[in-house]
Structures are given as structure tokens and as C-alpha cells.
Amino acid sequence: MTRKLDKTRLVIATHNAGKLREISALLAPYGIECVSAGDLGLPEPEETGTTFAENALIKAHAAASAANLPALADDSGLSVVALGGRPGVYTADWAERQWFEGEKGRDWYMAMGKVEGLLCEQGPEVDRSCWFSCTLAIAWPDGEEVVYEGRVDGTFSWPPRGTMGFGYDPVFVPHGREVTFAELDPAEKQAMSHRADAFAKLVAEQFAG
């Protein structure tokens, strides 16, 4: 039986304000108080994993150990069919930054441009299908862990559109829609996103019954 979260404080293992807002909103109905690793001044561990799950667990265990509280980490990214699944687990790395700049130093427009450039090299008929993946990992200070995975499929669109998202949201048009994630109302995006898919699985196991 999977271990359950207490109605308590939960460390969100991120320094990304956008992720903290989304995760806090998703957990608010369940009485969970969220605080970010950034707000606690916790260092960012080196993400040496080769899968979303490995990196999420690295971050969750580091935050749980440092804060002596349960921690939730999100590792997510964009995978493009025509690029063999890239950037994938290296999604954030494509938005290069200087070591001293922190999350705000990432250049997401440059990262989106890299994807577009590689797609253009394959010609105008290139397959622009892509998907966002999200892996959520919960870790407890004693080392116990659990993982949940979600996905949403869509199309890579250019040029970027919208101002309400973060990361690659301005170029991602989810299936069945004509607007990008960054053009959607945040509540509407949260209801259909890869993160929402993973959270639905987390909620079903953690808070049902």
C-alpha cells in the first residue's frame, strides 16, 4: 500500500515560481500547505538522471532530506517526434543559463528557437507532433518514495504566442485546441496539462477515501 501524505506542510522541490503556483493550486483543495525549495534557501541538486523519474526523485530526496519534511518534485519536458524525442529530459538545458543566474537566467525563447531551427532543417512538411511529459515524485525524510507520470499531446507551433505560461508553453498547441498553453487561462491549462494528468493519479492514490 502506498504511503499517504499527512495534511501538513509539503516542500515543492523547485526554484521555478510558475511551477510552484500551479502545484500549489492543484494541492490547495486537499489542505496541503506548499513552500518551495527556493523560499527555504535550499540548493538545487545536480540532475544527473537520464529519465524524468530519475531527476524528479533526485530533487525530491534532496529537498526532503534538507528540510526534514515530505517533498514533491516535478520533472517535466517537451519531446518532439521529428527530433527523436528531444529535447526530452534535457528540456531545461536547451534554455542555457550562466551558473550564477538561477532559474530567471534561462532563455526560453532561445530554447524554443532551437527546436524550430531543427524542425525547419527537415523541410516544410516536417511532423510537428510533440508531447509534454510530467513526472511527480514524492519523497519522505526517511527515504520512502512514490512516482506518478502524466502526458499531454499536441503540436509544436511557430512563432511563440501568449504570455500566461512559462517554459515552452508559447509554442505548444494541445490536441483539440487552436491556442497555445500560454494563451489559455491558467485554470483551463491546469485542467488539461501533463501536470494535471500526473496530479490526477497522485490525488487518486494519496487523497481518495
Results as ranks from 00 to 15, higher is better:
residue 156 F to A: 11
residue 8 T to H: 09
residue 104 K to D: 06
residue 123 G to L: 08
residue 72 L to C: 04
residue 41 G to H: 09
residue 202 L to G: 14
residue 64 A to E: 08
residue 176 G to D: 07
residue 197 D to A: 14
residue 153 D to R: 11
residue 160 P to M: 03
residue 89 V to P: 02
residue 110 M to W: 01
residue 177 R to Y: 15
residue 204 A to S: 12
residue 186 P to F: 03
residue 23 I to A: 03
residue 193 S to A: 05
residue 38 G to Q: 07
residue 187 A to I: 06
residue 139 A to S: 14
residue 42 L to R: 07
residue 30 Y to I: 04
residue 55 N to G: 11
residue 182 A to I: 01
residue 61 H to W: 03
residue 136 L to T: 12
residue 149 E to T: 15
residue 104 K to L: 14
residue 198 A to D: 09
residue 82 A to L: 13
residue 174 P to R: 03
residue 132 F to I: 08
residue 52 F to E: 11
residue 75 D to Y: 12
residue 173 V to D: 00
residue 42 L to Q: 06
residue 153 D to S: 14
residue 196 A to P: 07
residue 132 F to A: 09
residue 12 I to M: 02
residue 128 R to C: 07
residue 130 C to I: 01
residue 201 K to A: 11
residue 149 E to Y: 03
residue 143 G to R: 08
residue 107 D to K: 03
residue 148 Y to M: 02
residue 151 R to P: 05
residue 77 G to L: 02
residue 115 V to D: 00
residue 144 E to C: 04
residue 97 R to Y: 05
residue 208 A to K: 12
residue 121 E to Y: 06
residue 22 E to M: 08
residue 161 R to V: 06
residue 196 A to C: 09
residue 65 S to N: 06
residue 9 R to Y: 01
residue 160 P to L: 08
residue 112 M to D: 03
residue 195 R to W: 01
residue 208 A to G: 14
residue 207 F to W: 03
residue 97 R to T: 13
residue 109 Y to H: 13
residue 28 A to G: 06
residue 117 G to D: 05
residue 181 F to L: 03
residue 67 A to S: 15
residue 203 V to R: 06
residue 144 E to L: 07
residue 117 G to I: 07
residue 76 S to V: 09
residue 147 V to W: 00
residue 176 G to P: 09
residue 62 A to D: 04
residue 123 G to Y: 12
residue 130 C to R: 02
residue 162 G to N: 11
residue 87 P to R: 05
residue 184 L to I: 04
residue 39 D to C: 05
residue 35 V to E: 06
residue 187 A to Q: 06
residue 150 G to E: 10
residue 29 P to R: 10
residue 150 G to P: 03
residue 96 E to M: 05
residue 130 C to D: 12
residue 179 V to P: 00
residue 158 W to P: 04
residue 7 K to R: 09
residue 73 A to M: 08
residue 203 V to L: 05
residue 33 E to L: 14
residue 106 R to T: 07
residue 13 A to K: 12
residue 196 A to L: 02
residue 145 E to Q: 15
residue 120 C to M: 15
residue 16 N to L: 10
residue 32 I to W: 10
residue 201 K to V: 08
residue 111 A to D: 11
residue 65 S to V: 13
residue 86 R to N: 09
residue 174 P to N: 09
residue 144 E to V: 01
residue 204 A to Q: 12
residue 109 Y to S: 12
residue 46 E to H: 06
residue 107 D to F: 03
residue 160 P to Q: 09
residue 53 A to G: 08
residue 161 R to E: 12
residue 190 Q to A: 15
residue 171 V to Y: 00
residue 2 T to H: 10
residue 101 E to T: 13
residue 26 L to R: 05
residue 49 G to A: 13
residue 73 A to P: 15
residue 71 A to F: 01
residue 21 R to F: 00
residue 199 F to C: 11
residue 67 A to G: 07
residue 112 M to H: 04
residue 199 F to P: 02
residue 167 G to T: 10
residue 183 E to K: 04
residue 196 A to M: 01
residue 167 G to L: 09
residue 67 A to C: 11
residue 109 Y to V: 13
residue 153 D to F: 15
residue 44 E to Q: 13
residue 66 A to C: 00
residue 49 G to T: 11
residue 165 G to P: 01
residue 157 S to C: 10
residue 183 E to V: 11
residue 134 C to R: 02
residue 142 D to K: 13
residue 7 K to L: 13
residue 177 R to I: 00
residue 170 P to N: 01
residue 48 T to Q: 14
